[in-house]
């Protein structure tokens, strides 16, 4: 999978949930969305990206991926 594309996608997801004032709740919603709509190899790839430093991930996207 194209990691750059996945990073852009998860950042877009996080940008939507960033309006949520409760930061923990926002991160939870990002993680929930990924679990419900991302195929496992996509989740694995984004987790691997995070393990390697998570270059390009927004702060909220990073927190969301951490919860997977």
């Amino acid at each position: 999978m194209n990691v750059e594309r996945l990073v852009a996608m998860v950042n877009d997801i996080a940008a939507f949930f960033a309006s949520e004032p409760d930061a923990d709740a926002a991160a939870e919603q990002v993680a929930y969305h990924l679990q419900k709509f991302w195929e496992p190899r996509m989740r694995s790839e984004i987790q691997r990206c995070l393990e390697q430093g998570g270059v390009g991930l927004s702060p909220l996207a990073r927190r969301g991926v951490e919860r997977l």
């Binding site: 999978m1 194209n2 594309r5 419900k36 709509f37 991302w38 195929e39 496992p40 190899r41 996509m42």
Partner: peptide, 18 residues
């Protein structure tokens, strides 16, 4: 029990060989 690939995800997965 896990969601599958969407169309654009299928294209990405095809390009990575999976």
């Amino acid at each position: 029990s896990e969601p599958g690939l969407r169309i654009p995800n299928m294209f990405e997965a095809a390009l990575d060989g999976s």
